[in-house]
Design a protein around this nucleic acid. Structure first.
Length: 295
DNA sequence: AACGTTCGCAACCGCCCTTCT
DNA sequence: TAGAAGGGCGGTTGCGAACGT
């Protein structure tokens, strides 16, 4: 079957098809495209929205002459074509925000995305699944486990903060990282005269996101793995600060232990030895210093 | 160079909620 | 007020590029 050009059948969609017999028949009668969007389709959609605005996606698709479902048009616009969509590597600051907000809200991608200007829920979801879950797999633990959450909170996040501050120190930018940033209030999305909703970071976020799409500080961007490398196996002031700040988090968060290191006791010794026996730590989440730190 | 595997991400699916008629 | 229509969201899939052997 040609995946990119199929007849719409009963198997597609949720209530959309289930409840809409007329629409269903109409769509059965017309060939609807699926799969990757062409340049022409993109152009048509952008043009149409520029003149008529968003909303009413099904009728929009019809009126624009797009042989796509309304859902498909909406998705294409929100995740790709919107002018304020920010593409490129997830920055360190964004990683920090994602980790923190995910610890609060779980897989509420759209809610998390509201705090990352220009990032879509789909992008954040993909980031989480491809990067964070990969590391959880390396650690042989579940991303939902307390062990993994504590690892994020007490190792990765403080070190992200360190890295961000270190990068900031090497630039002329005045950037202050507030490890408690995610205590900020949820900022409502502004609607600018029916224009595109543009989420913005709360003023309480004291991270500058003004620079390039690669990194606010003009430095190379790395992922979670990088944030765990090249750091002394001691609890730095930043980390201590972070522990203190963490204790102020809301009840919904994993409550830190008295030392913030209790999770180490839960670390599976067999897994630990497997990591350490692994040899090539550059390919793993942890380096040897991290192992000493954990032990 | 060829082949197999892994990774990243765009797009789709299907459930659920809200809005409309 | 009920059913239809539209939209939002989290989960999943599949393709192409990158990487490894």
């Amino acid at each position: 079957m040609d995946y990119h050009h199929v007849k719409v059948g009963l198997s597609r969609g949720g209530n959309y098809n289930k409840n809409n017999n007329h629409q269903q028949q109409h769509e059965k009668d017309m060939d609807l495209r699926r799969g990757p969007w062409t340049v022409e389709e993109d152009f048509t959609l952008i043009n149409y929205i520029a003149h008529h605005g968003e909303g009413r996606w099904n009728s929009l698709a019809r009126c624009a002459g797009l042989k796509r479902t309304g859902k498909s048009c909406r998705l294409r616009w929100l995740n790709y074509l919107r002018p304020d969509v920010r593409r490129g590597t997830i920055t360190l600051e964004e990683q920090l925000v994602i980790l923190e907000l995910h610890s609060r809200w779980g897989n509420r991608w759209s809610k998390i995305a509201q705090h990352l200007p220009g990032r879509t829920d789909n992008e954040i979801k993909n980031y989480w699944r491809t990067r964070v879950q990969k590391h959880a797999k390396q650690l042989k633990c579940d991303v939902k486990s307390k062990q993994f959450k504590d690892t994020m909170r007490y190792l990765w996040m403080p070190r992200l903060v360190e890295r961000i501050q270190a990068a900031a120190a090497n630039t002329t930018n005045q950037v202050t990282i507030n490890p408690n940033m995610c205590m900020s209030e949820v900022v409502p999305i502004h609607n600018n005269n029916n224009a595109i909703n543009k989420p913005r970071m709360s003023e309480n976020y004291s991270i500058s996101t003004a620079a390039s799409s690669e990194n606010s500080f003009g430095t190379p961007v790395s992922d979670l793995t990088d944030c765990c490398y090249n750091y002394p196996p001691v609890i730095s002031n930043n980390q201590q600060d972070y522990f203190q700040q963490s204790t102020q988090l809301e009840e919904s968060l994993t409550i830190p232990t008295a030392t913030g290191l209790e999770f180490h006791a839960a670390m599976d010794q067999q897994n630990m030895s497997q990591w350490m026996d692994g040899g090539n730590f550059s390919d793993n989440l942890w380096n040897i210093e991290d192992m000493w730190f954990i032990q």
